[in-house]
Design a protein around this nucleic acid. Structure first.
Lengths: 213, 213, 213, 213
DNA sequence: TATGAATGAGAATTCATTCAT
DNA sequence: CATGAATGAATTCTCATTCAT
């Protein structure tokens, strides 16, 4: 009975997704009107409902679509590197470049992702977990290769690393002018983590004392 | 003309703030109804407007109040440590404990803070900047003491560190069950950063190669 | 952004205008609820806002529509007469007949027109000025024809004449039963003014004394 | 049980009346807030209700008070003249001067009188009728003295004359700048009516034809 | 498929009035 | 008498969604 997302490969479907990305980024999910999206997509209000179940569904679909692209892009970038350390650096740079090149997507992932994760309890956000797990995979790879300390818990580290990059992005997305360029930020952040992962000791203070620093 | 917060130290003012914290955390700012807050605070709807200008003002006031407490608490905790490294560890632990002990506040800082920063362009969120700058101060202290590498940019590092902790909190806030305990997470995250800050080199890969690792 | 009166010639637009005329006349602008108007017009509350910007706009639009009709009608009536004196008589009769035949419109013009002129400072009420100026035109015509005294100031006289008719109408509109019929009142009032205009002297008392009356 | 207007001669009672006059004139009855009046009168909101039953009662009391003054003043002025014609002139001048000297009262009589007459069906507005009847009395006096034509119906003429003056006042009250001075307007308007009353014929056109004009 | 006019539930805010002090 | 904090009913306007064309 419900129309359900008919024909995902229809051109209008993507026009609406693109329009929604723009509008949600500008106004936020709650303040964005379905009619705003329709106008931006140059379709009638009712047409939206031929492709999406409701307003929530637009947001979820948008995530899915964008995360698919982001994931695909990140996987491709990571495949260019052959060691965990370089992959960490590549991840940081790729992630921040994505934010820079596509502010709208970034803003939605930043702000609305959190909202949505909250208000749509049923939405599992599996793509986002996949994205996080790319980091966990790198860390495990580094641990297996003996480059990263085995005491590091990948499940925690992946969030810490993502969080660090994400907070940096948020700053950029919201402040509009950047004090530091992408490369510097990426180098700094991956630098903290790489050095941290490589030299990790559960009690760095003790180690510091021992090593005489 | 506007009634304006007549008496910040009024008991009702705080009852409303507490109620709003609970309701915003449960439903999110947009889905929370002013009448929900009124009911929770056991005041009439209209009473809310004797203490707050509008719904937005409740959220902003709530931030201000909570951040003041959070800041005060964090400053006190940090004052117990006499070196930068220990302060980093203390910051991580204190921050995560705060989240654990006060999920509602955490959730609002997590989710609604971002929303609000976005939709209330005029709201500068200075308390949050103060909080971030506590981290920058520690890093600079560490750099001056020669413990942290001077190449670290405190303005970037503060965000990275906060972001790492924040993402971890988000996970807890939203997932309700914790795989890892507070202490472990705090130790891990401060460990990454401490080791990273102490051993920082802009190109850790080169260093690694040179050192024969 | 605003929907704005999408289609003035739409049937619903006129249904709403008619409903509003009735409701405003019965309850007055401030006591009339938009939902009352909607119910009377047999449309949903929201539909009102497809055709009008807000409640004020309903009132203003209603004026414009009605005054257009009133003006048109009055112009047509006046064109039937070929001299200023007869036009004055015709004006009085036409105006009072209008009131009798359409109490609702009359009541709104009587009561709400004044309110609105006051609370909507920006609304210039040009149609009403046009209506008043029909009278000024007649007076000037009479002065040019030598029938009305040249000392009469049309700008004052037009208001005096309109005010006289208007006060009479108000009485009828509000008291619901008429002591005198339309024709008598029209004859009386136009009689005062015609005799006054034709025999006008700035100091009638002196003239009276001189003429021995 | 109802407090009812306690002690009319209390100083606060009059302070509130004065404040209400100012506020109603500025904002109109419906837009005026009781708390505005309280602030203007420098009393607490609740104090208003010690002297008035409710908001409507403030308006009604205000009328009564003001009309009493207006009536008293007009009676005194009229008593200075010993013939009907001069009384008509005096009435016009006095009425318009009142408007000029007390814009707030004028505005309320102008605008709110009408509103109130409408929305408070039970309020008979007897003072206003008394005021109108001062005019009827003059006309009858004039008719008895043989100065005014006996065909004039005082009950109609009183409204016509008052309406003429009233419309003129309305213009002044609302437009804030005056094209003509009080004396000119008073002279013009009383001139129309005096000449009209003195030379009145039910069919002035016929008379004009007969007299060869 | 596509439209967009129509719907009507829903929510923030206001303000006359009360009453405990 | 006087206060003014508290109340909560009342009302405008919005906007996601539907459905006849």
């Amino acid at each position: 009975m419900a129309p359900a997302k008919k024909n995902k490969h229809n051109e209008k479907y993507h026009r609406i997704i693109r329009a929604a990305t723009k509008i949600f980024a500008k106004k936020g999910f709650f303040k964005a009107k379905v009619s705003d999206i329709a106008k931006e997509a140059q379709v009638a209000d009712g047409t939206i409902y031929l492709y999406f179940e409701n307003k929530d569904d637009i947001l979820i679909s948008l995530f899915e679509e964008q995360m698919l692209l982001v994931l695909e892009n990140m996987r491709q970038q990571l495949s260019k590197e052959d060691n965990a350390a370089k992959k960490i650096e590549r991840f940081a740079l790729t992630h921040l470049k994505l934010i820079e090149s596509n502010k709208n997507v970034a803003e939605i992932i930043q702000v609305e992702l959190r909202q949505s994760t909250k208000f749509m309890k049923e939405y599992k956000n599996e793509r986002f977990m996949e994205y996080l797990n790319l980091i966990a995979d790198i860390i495990e790879e580094g641990q297996k290769g003996g480059v990263f300390n085995k005491a590091i818990i990948p499940d925690i580290a992946k969030r810490a690393f993502f969080g660090a990059l994400d907070e940096m992005s948020r700053f950029w997305v919201l402040s509009s002018r950047k004090k530091y360029d992408i490369e510097t930020a990426a180098e700094q952040i991956s630098g903290y983590f790489l050095n941290g992962f490589m030299n990790y000791t559960p009690s760095p203070l003790k180690k510091a004392v021992l090593s005489g620093k």
